[in-house]
């Protein structure tokens, strides 16, 4: 359980970090919280030749609303979201979700963008980003580009971040005052990876759903946003029957992955339940 030999560099700024990643290319790997990477290295499943430690790049440590977006720098830990980080529904939503991420000590070290860059299919932040339509700011020595969540997640542990790129920031759209959210996750034990989870956000005015965001995670190689169902929700009054129907529709839309903890049949059952419960919570 010792990693293969590696070199270690600790840049002191975002620019230096980007330069280091460019220098080392395929051999380099950025590390922030290390909660997934270090375990993979100890199993020798990951063998980066050079670790580029972002923890000295203090200009990546920020979290602020700006221009209708919540800007999350690459050193923002999960634990930062334990209490609402921004006024309004988004802060509440993030605080609701964060407690499902692993365990308290892990949340003190792991980072928001680290989760996105790792792209575990069962990552809560990946689901949040995909469902709410986040933008990812990817930097390299040539400058930076903004990638929509829909294009960012490419598969299990695979994203739009290239070998010389740094995922420097994620931007989540702020939600207006009439938005409410619901999140439901089913896992074997508290803190385990989700076997299925759903995030729902509804804008409800005058007893009618004006806009909806609905996503499912832990069931495919990447988080899924169910835009077809979002469209069906709009204009409807929230009801148990509506949400139960959405659960069944979601179940029928998705071809889930299988593993030793959940067959495809079982995951289909869970999809129905997590979607229904997330929507119900959002409307309650």
């Amino acid at each position: 359980m010792k990693p293969a030999p590696f070199e270690y560099v600790r840049p002191s700024s975002r620019a230096e970090a980007v330069a280091a990643l460019a220098t080392h290319g395929d051999d380099g790997k950025a590390i922030a919280g290390g909660q997934s990477l270090v375990a993979a290295m100890n199993f020798r499943l990951a063998r980066p030749a050079v670790l580029v430690d972002l923890n000295g790049a203090t200009d990546l440590d920020y979290l602020r609303p700006e221009g209708g977006k919540l800007r999350i720098g690459a050193l923002t830990r999960h634990a930062a979201f334990h209490r609402p980080v921004v006024e309004g529904p988004l802060g509440v939503l993030l605080a609701r979700v964060v407690r499902n991420i692993a365990h308290y000590p892990i949340r003190q070290r792991g980072t928001f963008t680290g989760s996105l860059a790792h792209a575990d299919p069962a990552s809560e932040w990946c689901l949040v980003s995909r469902t709410l339509g986040a933008e990812m700011v990817i930097a390299n020595t040539g400058g930076e580009r903004v990638c929509a969540a829909a294009d960012f997640f490419r598969g299990t542990f695979t994203t739009a971040v290239g070998t010389e790129d740094l995922l420097a920031e994620a931007r989540l759209p702020l939600l207006g005052p009439n938005w409410r959210s619901g999140f439901f996750e089913f896992s074997r034990r508290a803190g385990d990876f989700a076997l299925a989870m759903s995030l729902a956000a509804l804008e409800i005015e005058g007893g009618v759903i004006r806009a909806a965001r609905l996503g499912v995670g832990g069931v495919a190689d990447r988080p899924l946003r169910l835009e077809a169902l979002e469209a069906q929700l709009v204009g409807q009054a929230p009801s148990a029957a509506l949400f139960a129907g959405m659960g069944e529709a979601a179940r029928d839309l998705i071809t889930p992955t299988e593993d030793i903890h959940a067959s495809a049949d079982y995951r289909r059952d869970l999809i129905r339940t997590v979607v229904n419960r997330a929507l119900t919570q959002a409307a309650s």
């Binding site: 199993f43 074997r188 034990r189 508290a190 803190g191 990876f193 030793i260 903890h261």
Partner: peptide, 27 residues
Amino acid sequence: FEELVYDETGNLLTASLADYLPPTIAE
């Protein structure tokens, strides 16, 4: 909770605490 699972080739699929699940105080 706990179950060790071998595949049909005799390879252990549950060789870490991510897949083999002792109950915690929360359970």
